[in-house]
Amino acid sequence: MIEFLSSSSFFALALALVVYAFADVLQKKFKTPLLNPLVVSSAVIILLLVVLDIPNERFQAGCQVLSYLLTPATICLAISFYEKFQALKHYLPAVIAGVLAGVVCSLGSVYILCKVCHVDHTVMLSLMPKSVTTAIGMALSAELGGITAISTVAIVITGNIGNMAGPTLCKLLHIDDEISRGVAFGTASHVIGTSKAIELSQLTGAVSSLSLTLAGIVTCLLMSFLAQYM
């Protein structure tokens, strides 16, 4: 039985999709970012693989077909970016300045704290892209020689912090206008933060979505330049 599951062509893919569908229903029911479907489904799958003694390599091979979609799907982020860009042209200087400052701050603070805490170099490289959206962060982590698994988990945690602490941080730091709030959510906590920004106001959500793509591009450019010095 276990042998059959390990060698089946569709078991891994079916498992991933079914468990994710359940996790998605669970989040819609309880409406808390803590039950992030990606985290819940990954945890359940890890548990099942360990309990059923199915090798991780077999699961990875079964899901390989999905990784094929990553590049085309990421390219499609350009479509909504272009539409938002047209609508938000007026706010561009503030958005660009905020995103640039945020990206420099994110990369700089991760680098400094990792050096201070003697974090392993490969783990540090995996944490660097943690504020950008998973598709870009994961690809960038792979380019830099990081561990993509650590990056995806760090990215999801980061998104949830922005989602949950964002509204409080806005009040504490007196980030009052809709544009600046959107820049903060998008730059610091990508798509997961953007889902909270949309709740605050439509404009904040749109700016957040614009900022997250811009932050992804800026992070890649900056890291490609900095990588040679690390």
Binding site: G98, L100, C105, L113, I161, I179
Partner: peptide, 18 residues
């Protein structure tokens, strides 16, 4: 590290944009 850097990034990007 993740918590501290995320809060910093959130504050810096928002305040600079503002």
């Amino acid at each position: 590290i993740i918590v501290v850097t995320t809060v910093l990034t959130f504050g810096v990007s928002g305040l600079v944009a503002q």
